[in-house]
């Protein structure tokens, strides 16, 4: 049931992003493409759930995290932080490919590189929030689309970082516990995509 609600929330976000695509600034257009492709992957994944669909998510998560990090690299002003984010993105791609080819393999979900990606996205959001705190001309937070999006990402990926990092251990201890915790992740997913929708709507209302 929760998965269906999550897919509906994701669909709503995708439709809002698609509807307003032309009016959005560059980095939010990239973000919209990401939401649309997430919906496509999740939709296909939902129907391929009885087969091994891990390979698809392994590839997609690499693209997803690289895009998230690129979006934050675009909106962060500090050159040193931009360079740091680029270095972290490269390190993530290298680590993910190495994990995929030499460690966890292509057909098993690469939870360790996923966890690393979660950590990097959280770091990028924190960098952006620090930048907001030092703005010389601060705007109301509710008028900043990236505040909504960043909050959604931080809530979801901070929790997912621990969950995905410990998922193998949790399964070995109690499959029931791992499944129950996954319910929480689904709820966080719904929250995240709702905040994404709020961010896109906010961007449109601010540009009017």
């Amino acid at each position: 049931m929760l998965t269906k609600i999550y897919l509906v929330t994701l669909l709503v976000s995708s439709l809002i992003a698609l509807y307003h695509f032309k009016k959005l600034p560059g980095h939010l257009q990239l973000f919209s493409i990401l939401i649309l492709s997430t919906f496509a992957v999740e939709f296909i994944g939902y129907f391929l759930v009885r087969t091994n669909n891990a390979w698809m998510f392994n590839i997609f998560t690499v693209i997803e995290f690289v895009l998230y990090l690129s979006i934050f690299r675009h909106i962060i002003h500090s050159n040193s932080q931009k360079k740091l984010l680029l270095a972290l993105t490269i390190s993530y791609v290298v680590a993910s490919l190495a994990n995929m080819l030499f460690f966890q393999g292509f057909f098993k979900f690469n939870n360790y590189s996923y966890s690393y990606g979660c950590m990097l996205v959280c770091a990028a959001v924190v960098m952006y929030f620090f930048q907001l705190l030092h703005y010389s001309n601060p705007q109301p937070l509710t008028h900043l689309p990236m505040f909504w999006i960043g909050t959604g990402l931080l809530i979801y990926y901070a929790c997912n970082f621990f969950y995905m990092g410990l998922v193998n251990y949790l399964i070995s201890v109690s499959l029931e516990l791992a499944t129950e915790l996954f319910t929480l992740i689904a709820v966080l997913n719904i929250i995240m995509y709702s905040l994404f929708s709020a961010g896109i709507v906010c961007s449109i209302t601010q540009r009017k």
Partner: peptide, 15 residues
């Protein structure tokens, strides 16, 4: 997140 929002809001009001 609450700490961030409050700090930002304080700065915004000062501005």
């Amino acid at each position: 997140i609450i700490f961030f929002v409050l700090s930002y809001q304080k700065r915004y009001l000062k501005h």
